[in-house]
Amino acid sequence: MSPSSSKLWSRQQSSFDTLNSQWQNPNGVLSVLSIIGGDVVQRAIAQLAGSGPSHFTPVAFSFGWVAYSFSALLSAVGEGRLMPPSDCPSIVVNAKNGYVRTNMSWPLGRLLRDHWSPHYQNPNGLTVSIYFASKSKPAGIPDKDWVYYSGITTIIAQILLSILPAILNQDWVIFIVTVSGTLLALIGGALPQWRAEKWAARGVDKREIICLTRGNGSNSVIVIVSDKTGIRLEDLATARLERFRSTTVMTFILATLWIVYLLTVQALVNDAWFLLAIGGLGMIQNLIAAGATRSAAALGFHLERLREVHHDKVFNALVEAEGLERGVALSLIPVFFPGGLRADETAWVDAKKAEYAQSDALGHAQKNGARQSVISSPTEIEITEKSL
């Protein structure tokens, strides 16, 4: 064999040895995977945080937690938020005064994104779904669904899988690393600011009607009627900041511990495939939790269906919805018809406004008459007593 052929064979043999070593112990891949997927972890926590009276958030340990820990620290030190902004562009419209707010709330955005109706199969027209806020279940306390329990199941499966190296090779390192990563993940999801920020809204002390939609061009509107129950959806839409001083300290500590975890993973010599499988299982659970379609109750909104209206013509759908709940059509017409209405449609709007003005005037007159009667009653009693 010539010297050049010998050198070529030596280089190829070296490449094969490196490749074989990498497949036997892929610890280098673990380090790379540990710095991706932070946004998925944040969305998974946003989905499952505040799922009960405890702060337990079943988001499984995965490689993305290392990257997320640093983005969470940056946010805590800077803006101070943990919750991501809504990933479903939408607006919230007050049916009483027509005030329009851009929705920044994650749960409200997911409520609209995951809402489904058989009428959505028809791309034409508009569907208006009207709901009452439940008086028996408080808003902001989600029901536990399959997404929630998938996190618990994944955590248990990961721990059981991490025990295999100890059984097969008497190596407890993978178990220790897995349990440590799981504890760090659960602590990160249990920070009290998650719940406080997710549901930052006042309670409803009167009757409120709120419309949730993607805006002009959308084929759906969700109308939620809250009669002295639930939370103010307009407050929720603004995504009020609920900043805790402890959050900055805890995110700093967690980021430091995740660095220690990353260095530990880099030093693994044996059984790295087990940790790769454990982290991959966690990534799948994180992806499912972050993107799965969930019911309104699982998102924390306990709603009772009243009526659903659909019409191929948007204006007709709004007119029918107005007959069910006052102010729905009048508040949404500027949203869906920014360029103005036809003459007959304008006449309907004017007539409806005049009807409401007359009804309000009559209501005020009756209220003032009742108040005057209450005020005059003591005087009449006093006169009667003097005459006696």
Rank of each mutant, 00 (worst) to 15 (best):
V249Q: 09
N169C: 09
G217S: 02
L126C: 10
S180F: 12
Q193E: 14
V221W: 01
Q170P: 01
V204F: 07
G151M: 11
K137W: 05
I176P: 04
T213L: 00
G188H: 02
L257S: 07
V260D: 07
T251L: 09
E234C: 09
Y261I: 11
G140A: 05
N219P: 01
A166T: 11
S150C: 11
L186R: 01
I231D: 07
L254C: 04
T229L: 01
T251A: 12
K135I: 13
Q170E: 07
I130P: 08
I253W: 06
W199E: 02
R240V: 00
L254N: 09
F132E: 15
W172P: 09
T238V: 12
R214G: 15
G188V: 01
M250I: 14
I174W: 00
G188K: 02
D227F: 03
Q158T: 08
R243P: 10
S129T: 06
L126R: 09
I174Y: 04
V204Y: 06
P192I: 03
I159K: 13
I159M: 12
I253Q: 01
L241N: 08
I224N: 12
W199N: 08
E197M: 09
A237H: 05
N169G: 12
F244P: 12
I152A: 11
D205W: 05
D171Q: 11
F132S: 15
A185Q: 14
C211L: 08
L262V: 06
G203E: 13
I163R: 05
S136R: 03
I141A: 10
V177D: 07
S246W: 03
R243M: 09
I187H: 07
F132Q: 11
V173W: 12
G151N: 08
S162N: 02
F175E: 10
E197H: 11
L263Q: 12
K144M: 13
G203D: 12
A185W: 11
S129R: 01
G215W: 02
P142H: 03
Y148I: 01
S134M: 09
L257Q: 05
L183F: 06
I130V: 14
S129K: 01
R245W: 07
D235I: 04
T178P: 03
T229D: 04
I167N: 01
V173Y: 13
S246Y: 03
L263Y: 11
E242R: 14
M250E: 06
G188M: 11
S218W: 01
F252C: 08
K206M: 14
